[in-house]
Design a protein around this nucleic acid. Structure first.
Lengths: 268, 268
DNA sequence: CAGTGGTCTAGACCACTCG
DNA sequence: GAGTGGTCTAGACCACTGA
């Protein structure tokens, strides 16, 4: 019994690219620096990132995974639970555990609703406007860990609610890394940058930080949105990173708030 | 063994004010409509609400609670875990599980930071401005489940960051329910409405819904904040409710965003 | 040192979904 | 009915805290 467990720990060790110079007796302790379920989580995250299981197809069952990784079902369950909480997976009782689609470009931070404290989120429609090149400002360069002036891809998207323009997005990505992201690719992905990143680069961006301001709508943006300029709007900045924590995308969003309000997801 | 479990289920039944007309054989199934850990959660929430354990003092240990409620430690742990996730409790390894302080008036929805994607939240200072009476508008009445024109208590607070005015709050509460909330009481609670609610009424408000807009700063508010009017600012509306889900407070906040930005808590 | 939360296991049963 | 996630138990050991 015990030797078998030990072997599994050693296997996990290599799977995680961790190195231990300790004697076998010490391996377990060394590994315990991270709880087993956290190690399982890393292993699964990597295998998901490598596209081992397509989106919306079931992973192996909890018992199957437990056998593969040589841990108990409860431990697998705890790891899966955290991934579900992070939105990477979802579960359906009696069916299985599934890889979630790439995150929606709108993001999980806040939700748009038409009414006041209304409950119906209403379908936002994403419209792809175009792709262009740009250079990193000081601010963007710092956030994306690039040098100032580094070449960027700029993706412009328009959000509509019931046909009416609601928000305007500018997504910025490092061109050196994601230069292949052209208009055709994004169009094939329904206009979604995140879906394109997932399919083309195996990157699943996750919101890392979001920031809000009240600003006045600029003339250029007002033209695109088809409304008057100089009205107060909501400005959102978002930094997204891969599951490994590498910055991927900087996004700036302008939200019209004259007739709409933005309801935040009730936290916890 | 089994009879003992049965008795515990029946006890839980009464603790939860649930009623079952079924024969003893059916009680278990009836109860199973809610998982055991969820029932434990309710029981604990109520006991916390009744002030059984003062803030920052330890609850009984997981094993002790398990014995009291006649469930396993793992089940208690799951219930406690969810309450920790909700911010009602916090845990410290080796010490115990504690009741958290009343929520901060600032709220858990978003966090203010001075810099761009900066990491230091910086201490916000709350300044109590005063108390007054008002009447419920249509909107507020609907949110607080009152009739239109119902008497309200209005509490005004100013938030400062490094001495500089950053935000202005107007909290509205039903006067019929919370009429005792006068300036003296609130001052005794450090200016915090939530602390006062907890101490005076045993109510622990939790954010239920939050809504954002970009608006222009009005003249009256500009005077209080000591800045120019007509600048774009962030407007936040928040509805708070008791743990039982009864609406308690409607709060309107005006955030200056000329030199500050509001970073949202990274979700999950 | 004793007591606490944190992790992990093995095994059981339930509730749901599908063919 | 077979297979899946969801819950619950009993017991073990670890890591941390404080006296």
């Amino acid at each position: 019994m015990w030797p078998l467990r030990l072997i599994s720990y050693i296997r996990l060790l290599f799977t995680l690219d961790l190195i231990s110079d300790k004697k076998t007796g010490m391996v377990r302790n060394t590994l315990r620096r991270l709880p087993l379920y956290a190690q399982i989580k890393s292993v699964l995250l990597r295998r998901i990132g490598e596209g081992e299981w397509p989106a919306n197809l079931a992973l192996p069952s909890e018992w199957e995974l437990a056998a593969q990784l040589d841990v108990s079902q409860g431990t697998v369950r705890k790891a899966l639970g955290e991934l579900v909480a992070q939105g990477v997976l979802y579960r359906r009782q009696g069916l299985g555990t599934f890889v979630a689609e790439a995150a929606d470009d709108w993001g999980a931070g806040c939700l748009l609703t038409p009414g006041l404290f209304g409950e119906s989120p209403d379908a936002l429609v994403l419209e792809f406007l175009g792709c262009s090149r740009a250079n990193a400002s000081e601010e963007v360069a710092a956030a994306l860990q690039l040098r100032r002036g580094a070449p960027l891809i700029r993706v412009r998207q328009l959000w509509r609610l019931g046909g009416i323009a609601a928000a305007l997005d500018d997504a910025l990505l490092a061109a050196d890394e994601y230069g292949d992201l052209d208009a055709r690719t994004i169009r094939q992905c329904g206009g979604s940058v995140y879906v394109a990143l997932q399919r083309r680069f195996g990157v699943r961006p996750r919101t890392q930080s979001e920031q809000l301001r009240g600003v006045l709508l600029e003339r250029d943006d007002a033209l695109v949105l088809g409304v008057a300029a100089d009205v107060p709007v909501l400005s959102l900045l978002r930094l997204s990173a891969s599951v490994e924590g590498v910055p991927v995308e900087w996004r700036q969003r302008i939200c019209l708030t004259a007739t709409l309000a933005y309801t935040m997801r009730p936290g916890a």
